[in-house]
């Protein structure tokens, strides 16, 4: 059953642009997780995980269900791996056309 169906074909291209464009694969230096990352600036980070990547990350696997409160700060090892990818030039930093 359709829901929130766009009425303009260009909207599908927008959805692709905002959710997939410029994603670069980054491998964790400590485990087998591979994620897709985009960095528009030093502070900005967008990380797309897959189910396989989450299963490979010991940090995320240690979480318990209802403790979102103190939260989920993300995996520090992956954060370090992303920094290394930026430093090594594999992941470029900067927004194109603002997205």
């Amino acid at each position: 059953m359709p829901s929130f169906v766009p009425t303009n074909a260009e909207t599908l291209e927008e959805q692709r642009r905002y959710t997939q464009a410029r994603l670069v694969e980054v491998e964790c230096l400590d485990c087998l997780a591979k994620v897709s990352v985009k960095k528009n600036s030093e502070h900005h980070t967008s990380i797309q995980w897959s189910a396989e990547a989450v299963a490979a990350c010991p940090e995320l696997c240690r979480r318990t269900r209802s403790d979102s409160r103190d939260g989920d700060r993300g995996c520090p090892r992956l954060a370090a791996s992303i920094e290394a990818a930026v430093a090594g030039g594999a992941l470029s930093v900067g927004a194109e056309d603002g997205y």
């Binding site: 929130f4 980070t45 967008s46 797309q48 995980w49 989450v54 995320l60 993300g74």
Partner: peptide
């Protein structure tokens, strides 16, 4: 809003985003 059988992995896969507020 999708039948359970039609849920795509990207709808539920973990996604993290930090906005640069500087």
């Amino acid at each position: 809003y999708t039948d359970v059988a039609d849920i795509k992995p990207e709808m539920t896969d973990r996604f993290e985003f930090e906005v640069d507020t500087t």
